[in-house]
């Protein structure tokens, strides 16, 4: 039982940065960004390749995050270029957002293979950031110790995002997703705010990739498949279970959602569900969660 809880918490906290990134694109920017399926393994690939190349794991992790930032920039720039040719209708604009993410994600598959030189980079016997923390403080980075360290990092990242979204630039970024026409009329270049927002979101996603690679001891080109769905599951569960009374609060909700989602996965695995069936299970979960408001409305009408 405790094993289920600790592994669920561990995974939930490792993936909460990705879920925060998905929250920023989907909810704050109103941009369904599919880049994340590529930027998560990008963070992992860059970090793993640099560590196995003899670099410090701290530098490697930072480089992984920076790579994710650039991936987000690319999606933002592609959206700007694609959007220029569109009719400007809401549907066309939505299409441009989806397509921009898909293009970057597809391109990143090749980039990730190139970065690693193969489809999988093992980190056996090499120090990652967790091993370095072990050496520094003399405590084993596993179980509850690891969880406490990850909670500390999650809280720091949460407060940095919280602060950022309340700065002047952060307000413009939120307004870009909330009422783009109005914020443009206020003199904000929404193409720029969107590019920056996408960059930050994908940097967070890549952070998860970098940490997961070091924690599980390898980076794999296929580890990003389904990231967007898992991210959405975390965001929606967080909002439904813990509420969204303010931006500051919803950031905690989303972290909670990530943990609940991974706990569910851990329990499912324990109940004997094959790991290969998890993606379908997640997809079904997201469909159910997304349809709750519609179903509720229909029921009320009847």
């Amino acid at each position: 039982m405790e094993a289920i809880i600790t592994s669920g918490l561990e995974q939930g906290l490792l993936y909460c940065f990705m879920v925060l990134g998905v929250y920023i694109t989907f909810r704050v920017l109103d941009f369904p960004d599919l880049t994340v399926d590529g930027s998560l393994p990008l963070g992992a690939a860059v970090t793993a390749a640099m560590i196995s190349g003899g670099q410090s794991p701290w530098t490697a992790t930072l480089a992984g995050v920076a790579a994710g930032l650039c991936a987000g920039f690319v999606t933002g720039i592609l959206h700007l270029l694609l959007g220029l040719g569109s009719s400007g209708s809401a549907a066309a604009n939505y299409g441009a957002k989806l397509l921009a993410g898909i293009l970057t994600m597809t391109g990143l598959y090749t980039v990730n293979l190139r970065v690693m030189g193969k489809s999988n980079t093992p980190l056996l016997g090499l120090d990652g950031v967790f091993e370095q923390i072990e050496d520094l403080f003399g405590v084993a980075m596993s179980g509850w110790n690891l969880i406490i360290a990850l909670v500390a990092l999650a809280v720091i990242v949460k407060y940095v995002i919280d602060w950022f979204l309340r700065t002047e630039f952060g307000l413009c970024l939120r307004a870009t997703g909330d009422n783009e026409q109005m914020i443009r009329a206020m003199g904000t270049n929404t193409a720029f705010t969107r590019i920056v927002g996408l960059g930050i979101a994908n940097a967070l996603v890549a952070l998860t990739g970098a940490l997961v690679a070091q924690q599980q001891g390898f980076a794999d080109v296929g580890m990003g498949i389904g990231t967007i769905v898992a991210g959405l599951a975390g965001v929606i569960m967080g909002e439904v279970l813990f509420g969204e009374r303010s931006v500051s609060w919803v950031l905690f909700s989303v972290i909670g959602g990530s943990i609940v989602y991974r706990l569910l996965i851990a329990v499912s695995l324990r109940l004997g569900i094959a790991p290969t069936d998890l993606k379908l299970l997640t997809a079904v979960l997201v469909v159910i969660a997304l349809s709750i408001p519609t179903v509720r409305k229909k029921v009320v009408r009847i």
Partner: peptide, 16 residues
């Protein structure tokens, strides 16, 4: 707060 910064570039100061 957004309307206050119409004329200048928005920065990393708190908006409110």
């Amino acid at each position: 707060a957004i309307s206050f910064m119409r004329e200048r570039r928005s920065g990393l100061r708190l908006g409110v």
